[in-house]
Amino acid sequence: DKPVLAIQVLGTVKWFNVRNGYGFINRNDTKEDVFVHQTAIKRNNPRKFLRSVGDGETVEFDVVEGEKGAEATNVTGPGGVPVKGSRYAPNR
């Protein structure tokens, strides 16, 4: 398990590439950019086929120490709701 650095952090999605399945979230508290992989998205938009977060979307997440620095995990919308997802992700 990766060491946990912070829990229930709010941030804004800087960018997310649906095809490659990753992007970055900017933390509201430290203004640090945190890597996010599609496997870290815990509550996906049920209408979306692929797990994703949308550019500019506000999300809540935990921060863990990854191999290359801070990574987001347990990604949801604020308060644990499903994320909205990327407009580029296909609908079901």
Rank of each mutant, 00 (worst) to 15 (best):
G56Q: 06
Y88F: 15
N74S: 06
P46Q: 08
V53D: 00
K68W: 07
G11A: 06
V83G: 03
E65W: 13
G69N: 03
G77F: 09
P78K: 07
W15L: 06
V63M: 05
A89E: 07
K68H: 12
L50A: 10
P90K: 14
R43S: 07
E65G: 11
N91R: 12
G79L: 09
F49H: 13
K84C: 10
N20I: 10
H37R: 09
L50G: 12
P82C: 12
N74Y: 02
R92K: 13
G21V: 09
G54S: 10
A89Y: 04
T76H: 03
G80I: 01
A89C: 13
V18A: 14
E71P: 00
P78A: 05
N74I: 00
G77C: 05
A70L: 15
N45P: 03
G56A: 05
G66W: 01
R51N: 11
R51L: 05
D55N: 13
N44I: 08
G79D: 11
G21D: 12
K68Y: 09
G85N: 02
V53W: 00
G80D: 07
G56Y: 04
G85Y: 01
P78W: 04
K68V: 07
G80N: 08
D62Q: 03
V59C: 05
R92I: 12
V53S: 01
V59K: 01
N91S: 13
G54M: 11
S52A: 05
G54A: 15
V36I: 11
V4A: 12
K84W: 06
P90E: 08
N45H: 05
E71W: 07
F24L: 09
P46A: 07
L5F: 09
G56P: 02
T58Y: 06
D1N: 15
G85S: 02
G66P: 01
L5W: 04
R87L: 11
E67V: 15
S52C: 07
D1G: 13
G77L: 06
D55L: 10
G77K: 05
P82L: 03
V4L: 14
I7V: 13
P90N: 10
T73C: 14
V63H: 02
G69Y: 04
N45K: 04
T39P: 02
A72Y: 01
T73V: 15
Y88M: 08
G54C: 11
P46L: 08
A72N: 03
G77R: 05
G69R: 03
V64C: 09
N45L: 02
R47Y: 13
P90L: 09
V81T: 14
V59Y: 00
T73H: 15
K48E: 08
K84S: 08
Y22D: 09
D29Y: 11
E60F: 05
G54I: 05
A89Q: 07
E57Y: 00
E67L: 15
F49D: 11
A70E: 10
V64E: 04
L50K: 12
P82F: 08
V53H: 04
P90Y: 10
V75F: 03
R87P: 14
S52Y: 02
N74D: 05
R47Q: 14
D62P: 00
Y88H: 15
V53F: 05
L5M: 11
D29H: 15
R51Y: 08
I25T: 13
V83T: 08
K84L: 12
N74V: 00
V36G: 04
L10V: 12
N91D: 14
G11V: 02
T12I: 07
F49Y: 15
S86I: 04
G77A: 06
E65S: 14
N44F: 09
